[in-house]
């Protein structure tokens, strides 16, 4: 604006093009992309397309029944489960084990994670132990669990408990480490008690990490359900899948696996809801 007003610039400001009209071209657009766009129907469509192709393949004989049963057969097996009322017995038994095992595993895991996060002694003593025990497949310990906890509900709940305990410990202690220290300093400067700082600052601050740990541990709990129900389980989704496997009833096997998958989706959805509610303070 403070530049001298040569006639050229004056005309430019008046709106006339400085160059001949023919040499004007739009600025090439180089932005866009790199941003996920929400596409609501693509997922279900892909799913439906795969099911349809699979069914067509089975009906036409391209896919041998021995190799893979048709989705309709698996659905029929599921329908029989519902009709005979067995579904609820299996689901009931499994959900009870999952809920008890996972809740205990989560509670103990959060407690241990807090200890590790808060006390240097606990960190030095427990963290190596947790790191050593976490990667052990709990299935390998199953015979020991049977001796310790019996072939009843004990060993099944214990398998799920141990499976969900370790990821929770690791998520919680990492969450405590990541709590903004300036908030802790603020709490101290206002003379808050130690317990108040833990309850009102550390715990809510670690909550996002604890919840993402819960997501992982819930998936692990469902994965371990089949292993947990290997020993002495008459009912349960895992026991049903094992039975289908030993009978080579692949339609029932697929129905059972589908039930597990739906359970996983449902638990994921529930935790998503819990996250939205507990972490509503986040943008």
């Amino acid at each position: 604006m403070t530049l001298s007003d040569t006639p050229d610039r004056a005309s430019a400001r008046a709106g006339a093009p400085p160059q001949a009209e023919s040499r004007l071209q739009p600025v090439p657009f180089r932005g866009g992309g790199f941003r996920p766009v929400r596409m609501r129907f693509v997922g279900p469509l892909v799913f439906a397309a795969i099911l349809l192709l699979w069914e067509a393949g089975s009906r036409s004989g391209v896919i041998s029944n021995l190799v893979l049963p048709a989705p309709s057969e698996a659905f029929e097996a599921f329908r029989q489960l519902v009709e005979t009322g067995q579904l609820w017995r299996h689901l009931g038994a499994s959900l009870q084990r999952l809920v008890i095992g996972w809740t205990l595993g989560m509670s103990l895991g959060v407690a241990a994670g807090l200890m590790i996060g808060l006390f240097s002694l606990a960190r030095a003593g427990l963290m190596p132990l947790v790191s050593a025990l976490f990667p052990i497949p709990k299935i390998a310990l199953l015979p020991l669990f049977v001796i310790w906890f019996g072939i009843g509900e004990g060993s099944k709940v214990a398998t799920i408990l141990f499976g969900s305990f370790f990821p929770t410990v690791i998520a919680t202690s990492a969450g405590v480490d990541n709590v903004d220290r300036s908030l802790v300093r603020m709490g101290q400067s206002f003379g808050l008690s130690w317990w108040s700082i833990v309850r009102k600052i550390i715990l809510p601050g670690a909550m996002p990490a604890i919840l993402s740990g819960a997501r992982i541990s819930a998936s692990i709990a469902i994965i371990l359900l089949v292993a947990a129900e290997m020993i002495g389980a008459e009912y349960g989704v895992g026991a049903y899948i094992l039975m289908a496997g030993s009978l080579f009833a692949t339609d029932q096997l697929l129905a059972g696996v589908a039930i597990l998958s739906v359970m996983g989706l449902l638990v994921g959805w529930l935790i998503g809801r819990a996250e939205r509610w507990l972490l509503r303070w986040r943008s």
Binding site: S182, R185, F190, I201, L279
Partner: peptide
Amino acid sequence: NPLTYVFQDFALLPW
């Protein structure tokens, strides 16, 4: 709390 801080980064609990 006789000695009370006001911090540069506010130190408000976001929740």
